[in-house]
Design a protein around this nucleic acid. Sequence first.
DNA 1: GACCAGGCACATC
DNA 2: GATGTGCATGGT
Length: 212
Amino acid sequence: MQFYQVLLDHYGRQHWWPGDSPFEVMVGAVLTQNTNWSNVEKAIRNLKQADTLDPHKIDELTPEKLAGLIKPAGYFNIKAKRLKNLIHWFCREYDGSIEELKELSVERLREDLLQINGIGRETADSILLYALEKPAFVVDTYTCRILVRHGCIGAEYDYEQIKEYCQEQLPPDLALYNELHALIVCVGKNHCKPRPQCMDCPLEAFEHTLEC
DNA sequence: GACCAGGCACATC
DNA sequence: GATGTGCATGGT
């Protein structure tokens, strides 16, 4: 919680997830895998310009056609397959209705999402939190890096352990989960490179001292 | 030119 | 179970 307050004071609210609709958030969650967000924006722009940012339209596109549209996001062949896997499940099971999806429990949704080839833990949690407004804390490489470097967790912690740690430290508040992950990505981009470079990092004062 | 970015699945040991 | 590798564009 102290991390959260420091980051919020320093960076202000991030207003995540950038996207015009929950469906666009779902698409963005796949496209952003290991990719810079600016590249994802270009891919989403292509989908909009082709009038294909719609569950049923994407479900009907060939993987090749979809890959061509999302090319700027990188890994376009593999992401086209992953996106179609997700959208096909969404159309087949819920007729492309976000409202129907949202009626299910977070546990059931997470289990189902993780069954889809191409949807891993982070992507599933991003969809749950930012598209479906379910209380699922999103762990990413920055979360891991920051918590390890500040001595909060061991380097051997896996995704589920880190997620559990974070959820234990925080009240189960949707808005808090939403904002904190966005802030972590923000500080991570600016100050938490793979090789430590924490110049002027707003979290520096916490290093190896305070509880998270 | 090297490095990095809001991961994931699969092969190999 | 742990580790390594392929996937690819675009910004710094």
